[in-house]
């Protein structure tokens, strides 16, 4: 089991009051799975994704990824763990505007001991996989939304992470670009065996996943 979640709970303090966001979540994700987390706004799907990605910490419960209890890791170790194990795809791409497509994809590799030549070969490979070999020197503002998201996908996979988390990856794209991105993610899952957990509002996007998980008011509704 790649991701093991048991009785997970999370609440936020808003206006001096604790507001429960997730309650008693139990979920398993196999390696090579592609899960779509769906649910209405405020259902806690992004919070669950953030917890699995190690960018937030639960209040209670067990959260193991690849056998590591990430909730127990101190901040510095958690940052190292994320760098080695998690690839991020965000709704608004979150590329560094002052870096070219090549440099953006290279970012996660700057935290690895890879040589410059090794980094170059990896970056060129993933950019060719997402079809942007000819846009390597372009800055984000010189790329379309779909192209920027493809750069983000390349950045997410370049360090060969254990798991890819995607938060509304097609939320800011037109239909054609959205289909391209989803096809690419399916390919990553199917051909490269990448484990993907994707948050989406869009039922069409969710159909790209192998499995659907519904959240409502912080509780898991369906967990096959």
């Amino acid at each position: 089991m790649l991701v093991e979640i048991r009785n997970l709970a999370k609440s936020y303090v808003r206006g001096g009051q604790a507001v429960p966001v997730l309650a008693d979540i139990t979920l398993d994700v196999e390696a090579g799975d592609f899960i779509a987390l769906m649910g209405p706004s405020g259902s806690g799907k992004t919070t669950l994704l953030n917890l699995i990605a190690g960018i937030d910490k639960p209040d209670a419960g067990v959260l193991r990824v690849g056998g590591v209890d990430i909730a127990a890791l101190p901040e510095a170790e958690l940052a190292d763990w994320r760098a080695a194990n998690v690839g991020f795809i965000f709704q608004f791409y979150n590329l560094m505007p002052v870096l070219t497509a090549y440099e953006n994809v290279e970012l996660p590799l700057m935290l690895t001991p890879l040589s410059r030549a090794e980094r170059r070969s990896r970056v060129e490979l993933v950019l060719s996989v997402v079809g942007l070999s000819d846009r390597m020197k372009h800055y984000p503002n010189e790329l379309s939304g779909g192209q920027q998201q493809r750069v983000a996908i390349a950045r997410a996979v370049v360090a060969d992470p254990t798991i890819i988390v995607a938060d509304e990856p097609t939320g800011d794209l037109d239909r054609v670009s959205a289909v391209e991105i989803l096809t690419m993610m399916q390919s990553l899952n199917r051909d490269l065996g990448k484990t993907i957990i994707m948050v989406t509002h869009d039922a069409n996007a969710a159909r790209a996943a192998r499995r659907l998980v519904h959240l409502e008011k912080g509780e898991l509704i369906v967990s096959p």
Partner: peptide, 10 residues
Amino acid sequence: EYATLKALGF
């Protein structure tokens, strides 16, 4: 951007 860099492990 800082949050993104932190998420990536910086």
